[in-house]
Nucleic acid binder design. Structure first.
Lengths: 340, 340
DNA sequence: TTGTAGGCGTTATCAT
DNA sequence: ATGATAACGCCTACAA
């Protein structure tokens, strides 16, 4: 027989005091007798009393829950971001309501909808690739739910967002290569409809141009992230009459495929051709040929900052100026791998 | 000026009807006038009315929220499990409250505590490595919150659990190797305090014994999962006077390190020595030398089944017989990689 | 078909 | 120092 779930009412009944007294005792209210207080606390402990957060949030209109919507937790970037988010949230006594969009707009809408229903105190979201319209997120404002975008953010400057400037990062990466004397730089980009791909390309072009060199578009390939797609891109790059001395890949997964292809074709990886990438994922540490440099996107840090800002937004009265965060800290940093 | 958050009361006021009428209209109650109903629905839409799940759950003592506690989302096994969990949950209109223990018992307690506060309808948990005592989970029963353990489950047969029988899987893997004529089988296990490591070892010993061969413990090494630890294990195995013809590693990450070491030492991977592993993670598909076979642990399927069972537990009156699930489906399957 | 009233667990505001 | 009461948003008997 499972004891009935203990409530303040039940405790009050057993102790022959009023509910208010119990509430005060439980909440360290100043105006309460020491004697009564300890009696209440004792019984509460004995009954395993646990405050009903639902009732409290219902009354106080605060749920102590933060919604987090991301495309796909399987991507290491997001799983690391979540850890940063969760850590900060827990410190502030917030719990995480979690949902994935799987890069599907309809699913994203559904998830956001259920977060609205649950009346999360705030929402962190990294947009699905399909998302171009924000009506489903705008309605959250009607419910006074602040929204903070991170990583995959809208272009609008009227929203709160935390992200990483990949264009700038790419420019720096190119500069770094030029300084090493490397001027033929291949680039395996992602599908051009992705913002992330367009940013990288802009950086690539800008980076090369700054060194007064004409951009050779033969050096720019695309992959759809499939093994075959990357193989094709590699084939094209390697068969150029003037092949690249370095290859930058869209991310570390593409890097792995590119390197595997290179190995199978007896290319002396990171000797004959330097490989560079984005993401700096942990898996590359287990491989024989990690990228010689990788753009660090600071997932945990981005998550941490995003959460801190969101909590601030929750606590402050509506701030009208959008909070756009994209400074040194979370911008790119090249991590140079040392594996001669 | 953000419009005040619309409630049934507000709608009732504006329409000069009672709250109950509004409620009935919104919930498709049969006893309601068609005319009234459409008026209500129309205004509700206009005001962007969204039912307050908090109030509903407060009243109905159901939150439509499932708690999920896992050690670390960065592990691909768990991130895939989550996707299975989320998909089923969404189908049944449940949302996920998420927390990681980071294999720390105190953190696990804290997370479970907050889930209790939030009155989740049920809890899915994969235990932290440190967890040997279940008091913090037992108290959930007092709140009629069913708990379902998955993957990292307690040994007790008095709990509901879904897991994968790795001992059995290992026996099958050994059998498979013997059938291929491979009898010297190296084994790089994890730290022996891990249940997962002990299970694997039992399977290893049992598998070899079944083939009437004496187990040679020189073939069994341990790694602490660090690169150096795995390198040491590999060194030991390769320096045996009668080195193994196959090496089974604890998981795919260890596999990657082992293969990297083999390559660096000019071992003809998967020719001279076969490599086998557990997990069948997606990263291995991007590498030049995936394991020739890997035990599939069906993370998404385990998550799916776990959630289905949990939802059943939520809906059924307290069922006293523990639900232990570990059948063919989610037990091991060897995935043979075809990369000659 | 619609309205009225009560209650879910908690806290805040009175009053005692 | 403690008790009584109202209120949060919603649902559901029961009454009309």
């Amino acid at each position: 027989m499972p004891d009935k779930i203990p409530t303040t009412k039940e405790i009050a009944r057993r102790l022959n005091v009023s509910q208010s007294t119990v509430s005060r005792a439980l909440n360290d209210h100043p105006r309460i007798g020491l004697r009564t207080k300890s009696r209440v606390l004792e019984l509460a402990k004995k009954l395993n009393y646990e405050p009903n957060a639902k009732a409290i949030s219902f009354k106080q209109k605060k749920t102590s829950v933060i919604g987090v919507v991301i495309p796909f937790i399987g991507e290491e970037f997001f799983s690391q971001a979540i850890s940063g988010i969760e850590t900060v949230a827990l410190e502030h006594n917030y719990t995480i309501l979690f949902g994935q969009s799987f890069d599907d707009l309809e699913r994203e809408k559904k998830v956001v909808e259920s977060m609205k229903k649950q009346r999360v105190d705030g929402l962190l979201i990294s947009l699905s690739k399909q998302t171009v319209n924000f009506d489903h997120l705008r309605t959250l404002e009607k419910f006074d739910i602040p929204v903070l975008y991170f990583d995959r953010v809208p272009a609008s400057d009227k929203v709160h967002k935390v992200y990483c400037d990949l264009e700038k990062a790419t420019i720096e990466m190119i500069g770094w290569l030029f300084d090493k004397g490397c001027k033929r730089i291949g680039f395996i980009n992602g599908p051009s409809q992705l913002t992330a791909a367009r940013e990288r390309l802009k950086g690539y072009i800008e980076g090369i141009s700054r060194r007064k060199i004409k951009v050779d578009m033969q050096l720019v390939e695309q992959t759809d992230f499939s093994r075959a797609g990357t193989d094709r891109a590699m084939t094209n790059l390697l068969s150029l009459k003037n092949p690249p001395a370095a290859i930058i890949t869209f991310n570390d997964y593409v890097h792995l495929d590119a390197v595997r292809f290179a190995q199978q074709n007896k290319i002396n990886t990171n000797k004959k051709i330097l490989f560079l990438s984005y993401g700096n994922l942990s898996i590359t540490a287990h491989t024989a040929f990690p990228p010689i440099a990788s753009v660090e996107q600071y997932p945990a840090l981005q998550g941490k900052r995003a959460t801190e800002i969101l909590i601030e937004l929750i606590h402050r009265p509506v701030s009208l100026t959008p909070y756009i965060f994209c400074n040194e800290e979370t911008t790119m940093k090249l991590v140079i791998h040392n594996n001669e």
